[in-house]
């Protein structure tokens, strides 16, 4: 296992270098940031001067080398828009994203798995039908519409919850639900189908033949086997949530990573874009590695060499 993890870390490193090259060149294709930064009355000399101080006059491969040697030392460069180190800007937003992401994640896991498992156990029953509609709506209703409807009902009409911003748990409810519902839908459907597959198997018949009470049959014998696909999906969801979810953030004026990246792209704040994308890739790779290791603990048939 230790060998496997070392091998995977090595692969992760190569992968990150590749990503850094791609994102570096892509962000430099987006136009000349100097023209945007310079004041309207700047002369050609001022502009050239600015270009020199930013190091943008050097060949691209030199610029890349400067960028990547900074990254290795934890320096992702200065944000053009915020005039602060990129990493500080990222860090100032990440707690918000983490809070919203984990709330939505917790909601989608708890509600999704419970609904999925119960639907599978009582397949064809009223709860199963309710689960199907719940999942269908979660997946097909646009997030911005759900968010606006929630604001309309709970903030404007009922006045129970604040429309936007953050600060208290009340601010978290609507964005977490809006975001969570979408992710719940897939979790529900996958839990249901995974459970149905497993419940049909011989070892479940065997567990019943042994005289195990139904809750042990479902929660121990069936659920443990249905976990692998559920965890795979949960990991993908987690990555998406941690890298920000622009629409929900915009609707509820939530200061998260998603909006930060989109704003940075529009402002041609290429160091900040590079910083956010590179960190997102790291999170992605780390989550995948963690999940792969988790598989081996859940299913003893999985071995890594």
């Amino acid at each position: 296992m230790a060998n496997y993890i070392l091998k995977r870390l090595w692969q992760a490193l190569i992968c990150l270098i590749g990503i850094s090259v791609i994102i570096f060149f892509l962000s430099h294709l987006s136009g000349d940031p100097v023209l945007l930064m310079a004041s309207p009355e700047a002369t050609q000399e001022d502009i050239e001067e600015l270009r020199r101080t930013l190091g943008l006059d050097k060949p691209l491969y030199v610029q890349y080398w400067v960028f990547i040697s900074g990254v290795v030392q934890g320096d992702f460069g200065q944000s053009i828009k915020w005039s602060k180190p990129c990493i500080d800007v990222w860090l100032s937003r990440f707690p918000n994203t983490l809070l919203l992401g984990s709330a939505a994640m917790a909601f989608s896991l708890i509600v999704g798995i419970l609904t999925g498992v119960l639907s599978a156990v009582k397949v064809g029953g009223w709860f199963d039908k309710f689960g199907k509609i719940f999942a269908l709506m979660g997946q097909s209703l646009p997030v911005f519409w759900v968010g606006l409807m929630l604001i309309l009902i709970f903030s404007v009409n009922l006045g129970w919850l604040p429309t936007s911003g953050h600060g208290s748990w009340k601010h978290l409810i609507m964005p977490a639900f809006t975001l969570g519902w979408y992710f719940t839908a897939a979790t529900t459907r996958l839990s249901r189908s995974a459970m149905l597959d497993v419940l049909d198997s011989e070892y479940i018949k065997m567990a019943r033949v042994k005289g195990l009470p139904e809750y042990l049959v479902i929660m121990k014998h069936a659920f443990r086997n249905a976990l692998i696909p559920i965890i795979t999906l949960a990991a993908l969801n987690l990555i998406m949530l941690l890298n920000g979810t622009v629409i929900t953030e915009v609707v509820f004026n939530w200061e998260g990573i998603g909006r930060l990246v989109v704003d940075a792209i529009f402002a041609r704040d290429y160091p900040l874009v590079q910083c956010c994308v590179l960190i997102a890739s790291m999170l992605f790779i780390a989550t995948n590695l963690f999940v792969d290791i988790l598989y081996a603990y859940i299913d003893p048939r999985i071995h890594y060499h």
Binding site: K205, M206, R224, N225
Partner: peptide, 13 residues
């Protein structure tokens, strides 16, 4: 049961 390859739960000792 009939099929010994399927009737034991793969994830428990």
């Amino acid at each position: 049961l009939q099929d010994p390859m399927m009737s034991l739960n793969p994830v428990f000792t």
